[in-house]
Design a protein around this nucleic acid. Structure first.
Ligand SMILES: [Mn+2]
Ligand SMILES: [Mn+2]
Ligand SMILES: [Mn+2]
Ligand SMILES: [Mn+2]
Lengths: 219, 219
DNA sequence: AAATTAATTTAGGCATACCTAAATTATATA
DNA sequence: TATATAATTTAGGTATGCCTAAATTAATTT
């Protein structure tokens, strides 16, 4: 069995790899709140375990074995988030922190029982896809809200889940995955978005909008 | 915050202290599947944190602060066992192992939500008392089944929860906490017990009987 | 009281996972 | 192309928690 730290590295490499391709030591270290030297050290260990590919100074990527473990941990995390949310009523801005600790510790049996309880769900409370038990992830074609123009309407697909205060803020506007809204105005010079949610007019700053991803964009 | 290992030591010292008073290094080490030298090392650390009292060669006991933490962990463990059993249907011979890992990781918030879901329970699936959130434990006056004589009837109060195979064995006879039975015969020379459970006649070996504690003994 | 036996502690090591500081390598700029 | 800058790796150190082996202390036996 892998250590918690090793699992976190694999999970982080997976997520960064999805965006960047090859993952640099520096990016990985920053993402994990760790110094680059520490990341180098773990990368070496993971390489001897054949969980990552790595050439000095050239960045890391996961092997198939490493990817399988990363997806396993991500599955635990997202199932746990949804379970805590639905079964225990933990607020959506609290589930991430909790799942971050539990993901390394639950058994496959408990994973399967939560999955069944939840009816084999495909997305967590923040809209992120839950890999199935074979590691298959459904990829949604969502775009960042910052790409929207005035007049367009859409549905919230996913929001980033790491910042608890941001999630409370979004919650106060009902900006959950599945919520539809229409862009009324985009202020010039990288300004805020004014949107219409179920008849309510709301102003969303650019920094916040960057963390919202949307679907079903229509004129 | 304490390390998982430190929490396990405190929990173990508490449990052993209930039986033995002062806890010797050797007993503690054996209980934790660790060498005596390792126990000595942790005892020293816990002493500097003022969580235990210890004089060389004289055994350990918990301070009030140490006891509070021990009870907190035991509360987590037993609430988790009952939650896994009732909410997720994990079999009673599986919950201990699972709770052993989760107890160090859940938040006070999740603890409180499980407590509420379960209706503020006072015993885990094996009959062990769950300390309340202030650390108050209800002590039951149960006796080991091995103290029973033929003709006596009683109710199962508690069974030990560490041996999964034993629990499956007990389950096959319906020997759960709350189950009533009557002793039909105690074989001589430390022999087995023949008992009557709801009309069914069952033979329980002495080694098994040692792990069953009973209540409400009547002639 | 002395010697044996048992329990406990000390000493020295290993693995994990982090750190800082220095050395190395790659990339950008002049 | 030479030099400056940035990224990465290496080297050496800390803390935790375990280990084995040796030394110490306590308890028992003769
Ligand atoms: Mn799993
Ligand atoms: Mn999430
Ligand atoms: Mn607690
Ligand atoms: Mn139990």
């Amino acid at each position: 069995m892998l250590t918690h730290a090793a699992e976190d590295y694999l999970k982080s490499i997976y997520k960064l790899q999805e965006k960047v391709g090859k993952v640099s030591t520096g990016i990985l270290a920053e993402y994990l709140n760790v110094k680059p030297a520490s990341a180098t050290g773990m990368i070496k260990k993971l390489k001897t375990m054949q969980l990552v590919k790595h050439e000095r100074y050239q960045g890391v990527t996961l092997t198939d074995a490493g990817k399988a473990i990363a997806l396993e941990i991500i599955r635990h995390h997202r199932l746990l988030e949804l379970y805590l949310f639905k079964a225990l009523g933990v607020p959506w801005d609290g589930v991430h922190e909790e799942a971050e600790k539990l993901e390394h510790v639950i058994s496959e049996d408990v994973e399967a029982r939560m999955d069944e309880f939840l009816g084999y769900p495909t997305a967590d409370p923040h809209g992120a896809p839950i890999p199935d038990k074979n590691g298959v992830v459904i990829k949604r074609m969502s775009i960042p809200m910052t790409d929207l123009c005035s007049g367009q309407s859409c549905v919230v697909a996913e929001v980033s889940d790491t910042d608890s205060a941001l999630l409370r803020h979004l919650g106060s506007f009902n900006l959950y995955p599945g919520t539809a809204f229409r862009v009324i105005e985009v202020a010039p010079f990288e300004g805020p978005f004014t949107i219409d949610i179920a008849g309510q007019q709301v102003v969303i700053g650019r920094e916040v909008a960057k963390h919202i991803f949307v679907d079903d964009v229509k004129e």
